[in-house]
Design a protein around this nucleic acid. Structure first.
Lengths: 333, 333
DNA sequence: TGGAGTGATGTAAGCGCTGTCATCGAACGT
DNA sequence: ACGTTCGATGACAGCGCTTACATCACTCCA
């Protein structure tokens, strides 16, 4: 079922059918009606591949994230999708699961699809891959990628400020022995986030911190908590890299008979919906996901218009959110 | 950057480049090396649209779900994706957000992309849309769509059995006044699931039930609970259509000072990871999402091979999972 | 009355691939 | 020495669209 058959049935040329499909106003209304009728009768659906190929544009934007299971990323995705739709764009998503080969595959897939723009929401990305993307002349927006290269917009969260707020608050409650739970991608002193944590703690001499890591899933958080508490270390407060992980930690503590916040305080990061709904509700740091989604989409759209916009860095300041999972250090600890 | 330029640089024909790209073994290794070199030097990425168009196949399968935010659907999606990848297929996803126009749009988009197969994981679908899909000759697998039409495989969960197990268990604990929390799509006596609930309750004369609904989100569950409890009704047990909703209900009960399970019992459905991690851990019904994902993928693959396989219905029997959110009816209730 | 202007439609050349068929040189058997 | 076979490669016709550009029938005004 193709354009030509529709054209034949409506007794017009393929160009006219194409014009009808693309809402060109030049078509006479009686002709248009004939064409529409033929389309319906034949149950015709335009071939999007042919369209993209012939038109030289795909009207599609790609979103690559490291873990769509985490509602934080999904919220960003949803905003992008909604914004894109209102502008007549489609969105294709790819999940990398924190695997760098998967990231390479996904990026190439997006290039192959000739997406009109690409949002990359992963914490780590090889410089060569950034170059590859840059050479493909695809407008790109990074979220939270350490050191971007090329003509891209990079959106960063001031993680440092966020973590400082958390550390300061815990310190004000009298906590001294802290735990930090991250995930593979960010553990290691090279990582910006990891450094932020270490620096925030180092500012206050009386503070001590140990770290543990796993993927940012419920189960991962639990495993990491187990690991953190396994070698006799008894933190009075545990800082988590995000809310999902924190919920996993909450469970492990419960299982060990440790009450939150009476025995141990726990903090999350992101302020996803779940952080309000778990028990106890998490003290966390809000990151405005919708705003991030809007910025990404807008930036992508403006870039695909002009040829070469100067690269930009956008920094977002997170807000501290006080809930029920934090409390004063237990007496005698 | 296209095939021709690569061919020119490697001093071969476009056909040979194409053969290299598609791993045809007929190419002499020295020629292959020249081509690979040219591809790398030019940073060439094949245009997937052209490939699909010329090849007449897309090696892509589509997945449409009503709410990817719910980990239940996402788990199915992930399994499909992983299975598809091992077979060299790509996956594109679409989220309908329970909106029927969005479903129509998504289905047409998939047809337009000429996907090799399509999984539709939504509870409700207009018959005309099913016909449209059928006419497009795309292999389709439905999950949990009420009354499928055309040459499709339909995977159903024996919801009836699942809900009976829940109702029977609550009855055995002495509960009489029940609440059921669904979501828009399933409320209304026509719906299979709704009927299952009503029938399961009707079997036992002493039982009474009232219903409330909202979307299957944390917030939606909370709203629905509020609605259910707003008009003086005091159920001693609340059955939820899924786990996410149940976690929302848990929060509302906590806010009202009602203890679970001492004052009110709550049950979920699906047995997503979160159901173990929330507090209290949910008594629920397990639905094997990975199995469903595997079946979907396999069915799709086998269909795209043969021309017309007989339609099939696969029914999955759910299992009752006892945890901490259910207990005996409070004395005097 | 004739040419310019205009609105509606047709013609046809690609877009970047794949896949069929043709070609060509080398090795082989007789 | 000559036809045969075969492995390796090239030529080229599409796939189903979009989009200049051409065309054609009118209308309008000098």
């Amino acid at each position: 079922m193709n354009l030509e058959q529709v054209a034949r049935r409506a007794k017009v040329s393929t160009a006219t059918v194409s014009r009808v499909l693309n809402n060109a106003s030049v078509v006479k209304s009686t002709t248009r009606a004939r064409v529409v009728k033929a389309i319906e009768e034949l149950k015709y659906h335009p071939n999007l591949h042919a369209r993209s190929l012939a038109g030289g544009k795909s009207r599609t934007i790609g979103v690559i994230a490291s873990n769509m299971e985490n509602p934080f990323f999904f919220d960003i995705y949803k905003t992008i999708e909604s914004d894109a739709h209102t502008r007549g764009y489609e969105v294709v998503m790819a999940n990398t699961d924190y695997r760098s080969e998967q990231l390479v595959t996904s990026v190439r897939l997006m290039i192959g699809r000739r997406v009109a723009g690409l949002a990359v929401i992963v914490s780590e990305m090889a410089p060569e891959l950034m170059d590859e993307l840059n050479d493909a002349r695809i407008p790109v927006v990074f979220y939270d990628v350490g050191t971007p290269r090329g003509n891209v917009t990079n959106i960063r969260v001031n993680y440092r400020r966020g973590i400082e707020k958390v550390v300061d608050y815990l310190h004000s409650l009298g906590h001294r022995r802290l735990g930090f739970i991250g995930h593979h991608a960010i553990l290691g002193p090279i990582n910006e986030r990891m450094k932020a944590v270490m620096d925030a703690v180092a500012r206050i001499p009386s503070l001590e911190v140990r770290t543990a890591a796993d993927a940012d899933t419920l189960e991962g958080g639990r495993q990491a908590a187990r690991q953190l508490l396994s070698n006799g270390y008894e933190p009075t407060a545990i800082i988590c890299v995000n809310d999902v992980t924190a919920v996993g930690v909450l469970r492990e503590l419960r299982e060990r008979g440790l009450r939150v916040p009476q025995d141990v305080s726990v903090t999350g990061f992101d302020n996803v919906k779940l952080s309000e709904f778990c028990y106890p509700a998490l003290t966390t740091v809000h990151i405005p996901r919708e705003q991030i989604g809007h910025i990404i989409c807008e930036s992508l759209m403006s870039k695909s218009g002009k040829s070469a916009v100067a690269e930009a860095e956008i920094v977002i300041d997170p807000e501290f959110v006080l809930r029920d999972s934090t409390g004063p250090v237990p007496p005698g600890k």
